[in-house]
Design a protein around this nucleic acid. Sequence first.
RNA 1: CGGGGUGUAGUAUAUCGGUAGUACGUCUGCUUUGGGAGCAGAUAGGCCGAGUUCGAUUCUCGGCACCCCGACCA
Length: 416
Amino acid sequence: MRQSTLFTKARKEAPADEVAKNAKLLIRAGFVDKLQAGAYSYLPLGLRVLKKIENIIREEMNNAGGQELLMPALHPKELWQTTGRWDTMDDLYKVTDSSGRENALGPTHEEVVVPLVKQFISSYRDLPFSVYQFQNKFRMELRAKSGILRGREFLMKDMYSFHKDEADLALMYEKMKGVYARVFERLGIGERTFLTFASGGSFSKYSHEFQVTTEAGEDTIHICDKCHIAVNKEIIEDQKNTCPSCGDKNLRVETAIEVGNIFDLKTRFTTPFNLMYKDEAGVEQPVLMGCYGIGLGRVLGTVVEVLGDDKGLVWPTDIAPFAVHLVEIHSSNPEVRKTAENLYTDLSNHGIEVLWDDRELRAGEKFAESDLLGIPLRVVISEKTLTGGTLEVKVRKGGEVRMVDRKELFDSLKIQ
RNA sequence: CGGGGUGUAGUAUAUCGGUAGUACGUCUGCUUUGGGAGCAGAUAGGCCGAGUUCGAUUCUCGGCACCCCGACCA
């Protein structure tokens, strides 16, 4: 993409009322725009990142056997009354239309997915299976905060699995721990992501959260470095401050942000909707259920919090908006433009996503903005590199600068 | 929802009970072109409502919005 055609522009200064690092950097760089507290637009650059995160998660959910679908955000009141959550869930958005009909804006989708799958489940032969979606959730946070980390409307991947018995549910539950670990690994924050024991589970006395350590975190977790797991503050006292896995007492305290969670819901939602199946003996049994969530915007914001530096954003390769930032230093010599254009075409033809800064701005401004955007690899084309016959490559993370030829550049991008 | 803070141009800021200033941006022209340039000119602003006052952006009250702390967050 030619940067001259990009409708957003980077700003030198962040809005005065933003304190959160993720909001400051993402707004300055033109990745997101705040519509109101807790509701953000994703602009072209930010959306590219969000979509890459989505695709990684999609691949992993498909590998885990999930089947993608998409459910509405608008839910009839009756479904939420069936589970009792119309009255008990404080942060439920309730909307009334002009005919007086009441609806909920979905904060989660158990109330929709259970009646949905009920149409297709009658026998043990129909189980198990999992469905998932990427969908905007609505939660009336009394205090939206921390930039995109805690929104009132936010994109979430939510998966629901259905099982004939606890053993089968437990199997899936354990499997999802591994799947999630791989997701966060691929998203570039694996080292800092901890499987965290939390309260709320049905059959094991825990549920599990996936927490990423960062100062911007709202939660406190107690980490066992030996096992690379953690314990939530809620249950640390019950645990007598020991690791639930190895029993070690040397737990490290850190603040962290919850980017995902898994719950064994069992029959919490299937019973109210009378979701049953017939077992091998022809006896009606309740279907068991698990759910598994990941907040995509929160993941994006967390990556910014963890990797962003004083110069701006820093994207992991797999979720960067572009692989290469081709920075052309404007020159009266037409060869500079020609060389840049050729490389742009060349790389693009090899499937490399390139943002080409073809604008007639001063070099300093371009470099500063390039740092801010955080694209992993910068290639500079200028009068200087022209005469040398080489390309100047700078790695955003770490700032290493190298002079390379075309072949070396292509090798580093894993293309021929 | 309790407490605190802030609302001035597209952005960041200053001043002031009496003509609202600066920087960046944007527009025009010229120069410049390897770390957010220079000169000249132009553009654009007091959150909303009520009150006090001869006069309110400034003081008072109310509302709204945003930010922070807390509570809340299957």
